[in-house]
């Protein structure tokens, strides 16, 4: 016997199978989604959602695609949140603390309430990465925020108006480009490819082999352990 629960989408009551995610339950109820639906698997941040269980005091934050419905769940999706994204030229910026002060000065208005952390469906330590950003510690900010899917639940809760996902995005790009060490083997390979034709000629030589020769080459190739 299929079990059903009562849920309220934007205040309106629907009876839906108990094993569905919020997203599937909305579709079961008859919504054809356009807003608030993306990868349907926790990677894209399209389906930030707020809910409260009737009679309980705490407000919950989740992704509709990966949270099961519950009895008496009051649901509001948050398909868009107006984050503040500052533009910059990644090639010419100086990756210091000054940059954060210029682009996202509101991080220094953080009052330490931790509401952002409590709202994160990825269970990131959001307030901590904002603390790293304040110090211009891009490396740690990047690492701590890496699993961010930019859903905006954190910013929705922030009394200081911080756009946490955009602060983290800046930190990760700076870390990837300026702080993490260059891969020497990659630079060498790119140089090799541009300096002479040996590597490309080797590919062309294979392209000129007969089908039987190529098949033999493939079937007998050595595979790195």
């Amino acid at each position: 016997m299929e079990e059903f629960v009562n849920v309220y989408f934007f205040g309106k009551k629907y009876e839906v199978p108990a094993n569905l995610t919020i997203m599937r339950a909305m579709e079961y109820a008859g919504y054809q989604l356009m807003r608030g639906c993306g990868c349907r698997n926790g990677f894209c941040g399209a389906c930030a959602t707020i809910y409260r269980i009737k009679g309980k005091k705490d407000l919950n934050f989740c992704l509709a695609c990966s949270t099961k419905v519950e009895e008496d769940m009051y649901v509001a999706t948050l398909p868009f949140f107006p984050l503040d994204k500052q533009v910059y030229d990644i090639e010419t910026i100086t990756p210091d603390q000054q940059l954060m002060m210029q682009l996202y000065p509101e991080v220094y208005a953080c009052i330490g309430c931790n509401a952002c952390t409590n709202a994160c469906p990825q269970q990131l330590n959001t307030m901590q990465y904002i603390a790293y950003a304040q110090r211009g510690d891009y490396e740690n900010c990047a690492e701590e925020s890496f699993d961010c899917i930019m859903c905006g639940n954190c910013s929705n809760r922030c009394p200081a108006g911080i756009s946490h996902p955009q602060v983290a995005m800046l930190a990760r790009r700076i870390n990837g480009k300026y702080i993490a060490k260059e891969a020497e083997h990659l630079l060498n390979r790119v140089k090799e490819l541009h300096d002479d034709n040996k590597l490309t000629d080797d590919v062309k030589a294979i392209m000129n082999l007969s089908e039987a020769e190529v098949q033999n080459l493939y079937n007998t190739r050595d595979i790195e352990k």
Partner: peptide, 23 residues
Amino acid sequence: APDCILWLNHLGVEFDKDEDGRM
């Protein structure tokens, strides 16, 4: 392919690297 990895890395994509920078 190598050009593209370098392009992405220089745009700021954080590839998994070891402490010496090797991918």
